[in-house]
Design a protein around this nucleic acid. Structure first.
Lengths: 153, 153
DNA sequence: AGTCATGTAACATTGAAAGTTACATGAAAC
DNA sequence: GTTTCATGTAACTTTCAATGTTACATGACT
């Protein structure tokens, strides 16, 4: 199954925006992901409508966060992207006449709903500030590793 | 995201096979799903290798269950299909250099793993006999509904 | 006016599932 | 033994959504 990486990409972009502190153009953000600026604009359109980010045209324009990282959950971003399906498996047909298929749909549907609820709940509990904190931790770790390395030389 | 319906289709097919009690041809099974016999053979190939079903060529040939329904879990079927991905979302890149992306991957990876574990665990606890029982229940319900309807006439 | 940036339509590319065609292989029936 | 029926499998085509690209209109700053 070809996987949907829009959530991953968007989180990446939002953290870079927060790190920068100033407006970033689609081109800059696209460079962070190694993709095309139009992909950024298209993906961010939903976030703009939901009020997570703002965009400005012209000189000095670009994208800025409309809320603090601590006020944005992964769930917010997922919803802003249009709530793409979380589960890669699906039913062969919805509302089948065949009773066998109805039983299959019921069993799988229950399992899918359970996993989806768990994942969506998890998304609602994680804030972008949590990711930023993890980033800082990794940053410090790398810095210390480099210092150790320099010392060894 | 285009969803993978192989698990759904395979469960449907296996229950029909159990219901029949005798060998069923790819053509018959394909008719149950409204698809092509070759799709059945391709999908069932994994189940044959895993020892869930047997296939016979020639006259009177076709597919038969190699185990009782109570001895087959949804997890067995999922594994026999090659363990297709359960989660529709993915990372933008594996093993990124960018620390931001590493933090994103860590957060999402944890969430995905949690949901995947739950779903896989669920699959391992549900047996095909459970689905067959649910089918029987639905069958009886429909029969009673019809009886009631006939009575009203 | 010129430049920079977003907004968006229109199209091409990609990748995996699903569907199809064709034919080889093997087993039963005649 | 040859005809018929069934699987086994390769090699395509189709489908569909994400992703990538091109082109151009719109608006804002200099």
């Amino acid at each position: 199954m070809k996987q949907d990486s829009r959530l991953s990409a968007t989180l990446h972009v939002l953290l870079h925006m927060a790190d920068r502190g100033a407006a970033m153009t689609s081109e800059e953000l696209a460079a962070c992901l190694g993709t095309n600026p139009v992909v950024i604009r298209r993906t961010m359109a939903g976030l703009r409508e939901t009020g997570l980010v703002r965009s400005e045209k012209g000189h000095g324009g670009g994208w800025t966060l409309a809320r603090a990282l601590v006020e944005i959950t992964l769930g917010d971003v997922h919803r802003a992207l249009g709530e793409p399906a979380l589960i890669a498996l699906g039913h062969r047909s919805e509302n089948p006449q065949c009773l066998v298929e109805q039983a299959v749909n019921a069993a799988l549907g229950e399992a899918f709903a359970e996993a989806e609820t768990l994942l969506a709940g998890h998304f609602d509990r994680v804030r972008l500030s949590d990711l930023a904190a993890d980033f800082s931790r990794r940053f410090d770790e790398r810095r210390q590793a480099h210092a150790k390395h320099d010392q060894a030389i």
